[in-house]
Design a protein around this nucleic acid. Sequence first.
DNA 1: GTCTATATACCGATAGAC
DNA 2: GTCTATCGGTATATAGAC
Lengths: 231, 231
Amino acid sequence: MADMSFQEFSGRVMVSVEELCRDYYRENRDLIRVKKEDVAVRNLVTIVNATIKLSCRMGFDAMSLRDLSRESGLSMGALYSYFSSKEDLLSIIQCHGQSAVERILRDNTRQESDTAVKLRNVIRTHLYLSELMSQWFYFFFMETKNLNKKYQKISVESELLTERIITDILDEGAKNGMFIIDNIQLTGSVIKAMMQDWYLKKWKYKQRNVSVETYAQFIIDVTESFIMKKT
Amino acid sequence: MADMSFQEFSGRVMVSVEELCRDYYRENRDLIRVKKEDVAVRNLVTIVNATIKLSCRMGFDAMSLRDLSRESGLSMGALYSYFSSKEDLLSIIQCHGQSAVERILRDNTRQESDTAVKLRNVIRTHLYLSELMSQWFYFFFMETKNLNKKYQKISVESELLTERIITDILDEGAKNGMFIIDNIQLTGSVIKAMMQDWYLKKWKYKQRNVSVETYAQFIIDVTESFIMKKT
DNA sequence: GTCTATATACCGATAGAC
DNA sequence: GTCTATCGGTATATAGAC
């Protein structure tokens, strides 16, 4: 099968902020004063998008709720119908956002018998998703330290989980003789580091007109030159 | 010559916050109310160290000057004898810190005729320095967006400069036939990304007992497997 | 369900005592 | 040179009108 293009990926994967907000709403009906689901979800989408946008520009802490009120078009009072504190808003986005990402990654990691193909697919899928949700990924990384300890732990586990997905494949390849790897954990770490650079330095790659497909192929080339048997 | 150890490096490179603060003091005698140089420099060191420490924990924006007062042991009033605003304090640390880093890198990049050796030295030097000053590097990265535009530009240029140091060597190696590189700029980007991971994810590597020497050698191995002629 | 107006607390910054 | 006390402003959060 030909390598998946970003266009194909973004057509297939519907990253739905609405779905994410609906999940949050249904799990917290009792805490949210607004009782009409469609109204609540629509406003939640607005709030979450505005928060991500402002936070990526100035940082979540520097963003005041007056800024958020202006950007979202909702009054201060209305905002507090949807969350109980500013800290709570941060936790909601982090927690529900990260689990949405994990679900999408899981759903889009097809079963694949060839270990090398599997690795390539995972790298592409991660990168394409981080392109679709670049502001979210940036937000997750930059705002971890503003979370309370409980949610910080969840955030760290999410970092380790994505690394684990990589290292599991590396491990399989090492066992079946397809890869030669001296240090699986460090190999996984640097693959993750290279993938992360895509959304942490988006300004740089955009300025240089590097497409996510070019970048993905490059990361795959670097990785394979390191772990594949030299012929 | 044998590869330099971190111990050797940290013995040779005196990263002196005092020196950095003295530079700042001498350039801004007129703005600083405290006139005894040794008193001023001593307190500046305390202030800068406390700022870095608190900012890495909670973020510069979330750190109040009352927090800084408590951590440094100086009163609010005393703090304002050393800088004119909170924003000013951030700029001082970013600007003087980054130029100190650039100077140290320049001073410690020995002339070297062998391109491959040169590349290895640069990777090691960058990583060892980012280990010595890990909180500073973390601070530089995380607090860029809180800077005003002028200093943001300086910060971006600093990012591009270190990448340029790498790509210049890659270019030389490509020209003299020592390296085979398809895309020099992207190669430089991912080398930088791998180096950056060392201080962005310090908690992870510490937890796993990965030493900076091990990490440096690993990055070098990954890089060389990608750019050296296969034999 | 959303608004305006307001309560309360803490922010950065400064004045003036010592 | 450093302190305490306090300023005005703005932050989060809420109460009550509509």
